[in-house]
């Protein structure tokens, strides 16, 4: 319930009506949306039990490693009710044709693979918020100062998932494991996304806000 209460408000994409409908507009809209979501996700992280007692450098390292996984998991959860489309925001839904025009077909396909997997399992909101916290706590940054404190954070969110599954899905004792087994695909997809947006950044044709660039550079 703590994690449910910490969930950020929804964000609208608000594509600029003055821009011509092309790949640059689509990517500009997505980068702007991501930048605003990142601000919310940083606020969200501070509400995770134990996160704020980590050192500031460790908080930064977890977020620098996991920010794209958190963004993608939110898109995935929003897209569960839609067939073959990604709901980046309520006002910004992208099908495969639109993704192809934006040069994002490979990423679209990869994220939809996650959507299908969670849809098949009937991923619940409680599980989604807990998995998102696990992704952050388990971000495998190479430069953590106090690994014991990060381990405590991991244990705390892992235990929350185990408890939830024990109470609500006693019919499937392996459900928590099944959920955790989706995380490698999330990591792989986030890595692809970061690489793709790094190359878009180098291209220089798409305007990007500073926080988004800062985090792309932290991962590069």
């Amino acid at each position: 319930s703590h994690l449910l209460g910490a969930e950020p408000e929804k964000v609208f994409a608000m594509p600029d009506p003055a821009l011509p409908d092309d790949d640059i507009k689509a990517l500009t809209t997505l980068c702007d949306l991501a930048d605003r979501e990142l601000v919310l996700n940083i606020g969200w992280a501070k509400h995770l039990p134990g996160f704020s007692s980590l050192s500031l450098p460790d908080q930064m390292r977890l977020l620098q490693s996991a920010w794209m996984e958190v963004l993608i998991l939110r898109v995935v959860f929003r897209s569960l009710g839609t067939q073959d489309k990604l709901v980046f925001a309520e006002d910004y839904v992208m099908d495969a044709d639109q993704a192809k025009l934006a040069g994002l077909l490979e990423l679209h396909t990869a994220i939809l693979q996650l959507v299908r997997r969670y849809r098949a399992m009937g991923l619940e909101r409680e599980e989604f918020v807990t998995l998102k916290a696990i992704a952050l706590a388990n971000s495998d940054s190479m430069h953590i100062e106090d690994m014991e404190a990060v381990q405590r954070l991991q244990d705390c969110v892992h235990e929350a998932l185990q408890d939830y599954e024990h109470i609500h899905h006693s019919e499937d004792p392996r459900r928590a494991g099944k959920l955790i087994m989706t995380l490698p695909l999330l990591r792989q997809t986030a890595t692809k996304a970061v690489q793709h947006f790094c190359s878009i950044k180098q291209d220089g044709r798409v305007p990007m806000h500073k926080l988004f660039v800062e985090l792309l550079e932290a991962n590069a």
Binding site: V39, I42, G43, K46, L56, Q59, M60, L63, Q64, K210, L211, E214, L215, E217, A218
Partner: peptide, 15 residues
Amino acid sequence: KEKHKILHRLLQNST
């Protein structure tokens, strides 16, 4: 560290 100043600032804000 200067490179990550926005993340740093957002984490330091008390909200």
